[in-house]
């Protein structure tokens, strides 16, 4: 039985990661072939960095990820504080459900509906060609928000509800008391939310596909349009880099969470 479980586990991982492993391997191929590995080389990476359109997409993706995660973090943290302070349990769960819908909603539905909204709104004010940087930013902030809220809320629930009052009691005006007493204790949650938002924004394809315009392409969209012409190994190297970046961010998130859990269990001990 035990060996069966082991075999099963190994199989799961093989199916999950073999394709990625093959892709990474072939991104270092010295020849242009999907079947034969002709030796190790960085040829396709070099080629990639000579492709100005790809570099531009990379730049766009990073701009989008930074901006949308920053905005979502600020707005989401504020929203989490508000939700945490709601007195009516009923209102609280309704609000949470509404904020969580973008998370469980099929991406394609979110994408199509947002595109419709943007086009409809632009018709109303008689502007054409509205899809582009700003609509993409709005879309990214929207799907990032629930992740920020969900990573900040548990932190708020853990802290002593009187922290902010304690700061005010010691002579701190209300807004300052939030930043001095409450914010430092929820920083791990805020950081996790921010990195999660950054990751999601970086690798989003479906929603971006519907809400962006021709003049602002992000990396996933660039990869997609490259595959439409012909599949060359430089696509592998681009995907490999995207995979590596997101893997790194996920590791950071996990380390952050493990650390704050450790702190939490320490507290319980005493």
């Amino acid at each position: 039985m035990k060996t069966m479980i082991r075999i099963y586990t190994v199989l799961v991982y093989v199916f999950l990661y073999l394709p990625i492993a093959v892709m990474i391997l072939f991104s270092f191929n010295s020849i242009n072939s999907t079947g034969v590995f002709g030796g190790f080389s960085l040829r396709w990476y070099r080629e990639l960095f000579r492709d100005s359109e790809t570099l531009n997409a990379l730049k766009n993706s990073i701009i989008m990820a930074v901006l949308s995660s920053l905005i979502a973090t600020v707005v989401g943290t504020a929203a989490a504080v508000g939700i945490d302070k709601m007195r009516s349990r009923w209102l609280k769960s309704v609000t949470l459900t509404v904020t969580n819908i973008p998370m469980v909603n099929p991406e394609i539905v979110t994408g199509v509906s947002m595109m419709l909204l943007f086009v409809f709104a632009s018709r109303l004010v008689r502007i054409s060609g509205v899809l582009g940087f700003w609509t993409l930013l709005i879309a990214h902030v929207t799907f990032n928000l629930p992740y920020v809220i969900l990573s900040v809320l548990p932190k708020l629930r853990q802290i002593d509800p009187h922290l902010q009052e304690a700061a005010q009691d010691l002579g701190c005006p209300p807004l300052k008391s939030f930043f001095l007493a409450v914010f430092p204790t929820i920083v791990p949650g805020v950081l996790t939310g921010a990195i999660m938002a950054f990751t999601l924004s970086l690798d989003d394809f479906v929603i971006s596909y519907f809400t962006n315009g021709p003049e602002f392409q992000t990396l996933p969209i660039r990869i997609f349009s490259m595959t439409k012409k012909r599949v060359t190994p430089d696509i592998y190297s681009l995907s490999t880099m995207l995979f590596a970046a997101i893997l790194l961010l996920l590791i950071i998130i996990n380390v952050l969470q493990a650390q704050s859990e450790k702190q939490q269990s320490k507290k319980k001990y005493y």
Partner: peptide, 8 residues
């Protein structure tokens, strides 16, 4: 405060 509300 009841549960002290020290700044953690």
């Amino acid at each position: 405060f009841q549960k002290y509300a020290l700044f953690p």
